[in-house]
């Protein structure tokens, strides 16, 4: 039973590592430059996935305050438990209170949100380089480009 618990609590990490290694292998071993770039993107998304999963809390909700909670600036004050009760977050005393355990950790989300947009910008630069290489050498395969460079030198 301990082993099952261990696997259920860890299998996510193992799959992230498998994805990451797939991307790394494609970047090293694939000969086609566009395949290399796809591998780079897979590597990148695997790392982002790992970071986002750090911020997951079991039983938490998205990091946006519910409407009622948001319009009650002093969260610690007693709120009347009347008509709008279903959206409330309640602690043991039957009062509205903001608890850190109820919301997913927003910090990894922020860091990774910008990383995704920068990722597409770097992918664009990579694709531009691939296009330029294709204009120069007429190929997007690494061995052919290297052979052309060698024959130009010799």
């Amino acid at each position: 039973m301990i082993l099952v618990d261990f696997i259920v609590s860890r299998f996510n990490y193992w799959i992230y590592i498998i994805l990451m290694m797939m991307g790394l292998f494609a970047m090293i071993a694939k000969k086609n430059l566009i395949k290399k770039l796809i591998g780079m993107s897979i590597f990148q998304t695997a790392i982002i996935l790992f970071f986002v999963s750090i911020g997951v809390k079991e039983g938490s909700t998205i990091p946006i305050l519910a409407h009622e909670a948001a319009h009650d600036p002093a969260h610690q004050q007693a709120a009347p438990l009347t008509e709008k009760g279903e959206g409330h977050i309640q602690n043991g005393k039957g009062r509205d209170a903001l608890r850190a355990e109820d919301y997913a950790n927003p910090l990894p989300h922020v860091l990774m949100l910008t990383a995704i947009v920068v990722g597409v910008a770097t992918l664009g630069v990579g694709l531009a380089v691939v296009q330029k290489l294709h204009q120069e050498f007429g190929s997007i395969e690494e061995p052919e480009i290297l052979a052309k460079i060698d024959s130009d030198d010799g």
């Binding site: 566009i34 796809i38 997951v56 998205i62 946006i64 989300h109 990774m112 949100l113 597409v120 992918l123």
Partner: peptide
């Protein structure tokens, strides 16, 4: 599903939209 809605929104717009078009 992990609750990272902002990240998911960005990925839907950027990853599935823009980067596929660029490729």
């Amino acid at each position: 599903a992990m609750g990272a809605v902002d990240v998911a929104f960005t990925e839907a717009a950027v990853g599935a939209g823009a980067s596929t078009v660029f490729l």
